[in-house]
Design a protein around this nucleic acid. Structure first.
Lengths: 141, 141, 141, 141
DNA sequence: TTTT
DNA sequence: TTTT
């Protein structure tokens, strides 16, 4: 039974152009590193900076958006799940943590395209379509 | 073009049983008030408590889950969008803010059903299905 | 006892310059409307757009940042709490929902100032300062 | 300059009792694994389940709460930052991803203590204290 | 009232 | 109107 929530919310900048992989049946995958930089004051009152690098992966439609619009330095909002994977390298088992994005927003762009936001798999119900024949004076509470 | 994020994340308890409305074509709507209570210390160091009441609405599948499993007092996690609506009452225009949930988790329950978590409209891609024929040594970064 | 979470996460654009109020003891308050615009496809496959307007309020340090750096049109990330207030107007009780921000990020700006992100009241512990004398080989799990 | 957001939001269950470490000056650290389980339907319509295990660390006050109240199986809400660390083991550099929590909620508990929610370092300003002498009819927008 |  |  599911009682879980596994959510990452990130705003940061791409360290490199996305790397694109194409699989069977037109399935596309985009991978890139995302730097999230936070500032804080230390005990001496100095402004400090801390950057984390996240491994981002995007699939299918989001990967296509990434391929078209994201470049090194792009500032994005990404919402997704934290995934832990293992793989073999040099006969050793290695572990990697990735953020599998399901929402992507390109931030701060002044471009004229219509694709700076995208969310997976919510075609018609987002926002929820109004129900048929709700009476005008039907208050919801 | 969308560059927006509109997200509410709530954990609280229902003040009443959900109210259910049925519309055409089997569309169901659930409405209820949700209390989120936070504690904090005031300037005198006293433990204080602050409760907010939120108007929650759920549609379709989530409304069915609410009807079946949520009751007065139930503790839930809800993720959704903040919506502002207006309506007429007594010849006056009134405004109401609602949270339209798209994810619902029933918390703390020890029941054995399989419905304590539910998310709208992400049938096959959540989590993203693995691509066909990804080679084993294909590292993603 | 608190078992609650009351969180709003917004990315949008200011509809107007922030309105600033100054209170006793140097307490400052900033208020503005924030538009969050989402796009989605309707049942006919057309690209649709939905904008919500949120009433944002910021206090103290965040209000100062807002006064200095936010203008009509600015794109910001805001994290905060949903607050419902009532007030009297024309002898009628009115209700208003506001988002009281505790984190503010100015997005998409290429300016060279050091104030585009700010979080309330987490002076030294964010990120948590490393503990004293943690041994180098001290693995955390 | 900070333009970043690095946030994890998790609801899950502890795989083991928290492990507690005590450092100089009374600094305490709690570590545990947290399982977040999600369900989804696969392409054949079968109910599937996916569990991720997260390495959680909590410092100071949150570590004390964890030590007192969290046990194997406890259901918790954790909000925090994603941190990537490296360390040496067997002469090899290893990487680990941890969630450093700054908010902790014990969920679903029916116990009578007053400590099921806790947030770091926001002593007096959360929620923001009302400003002094705000006039009663002072509308915020 | 914003933005694209 | 909830919960502890």
């Amino acid at each position: 039974m599911a009682r879980g929530v596994n959510k990452a919310i990130l705003i940061g900048n791409l360290g490199r152009d996305p790397e694109i992989q194409n699989f069977d049946k037109g399935v596309k995958k985009a991978s890139f590193s995302l730097a999230t930089t936070e500032t804080y004051r230390n005990r001496e009152g100095q402004e400090m900076e801390q950057t984390e690098w996240h491994n981002i992966i995007l699939w299918r439609g989001l990967a296509e958006i990434a391929e078209k619009f994201l470049r090194k330095g792009s500032q994005v909002y990404i919402e997704g799940r934290i995934r832990n994977r293992s793989y073999e390298k040099d006969g050793q088992k290695r572990y990697i943590t990735e953020i599998e994005g399901d929402t992507l927003n390109l931030l701060g762009s002044r471009q004229s395209n219509d694709s700076s936001s995208y969310q997976e798999n919510q075609p018609s119900a987002q926002p929820a379509p109004p129900p048929v024949q709700e009476p005008e004076d039907d208050l919801p509470f």
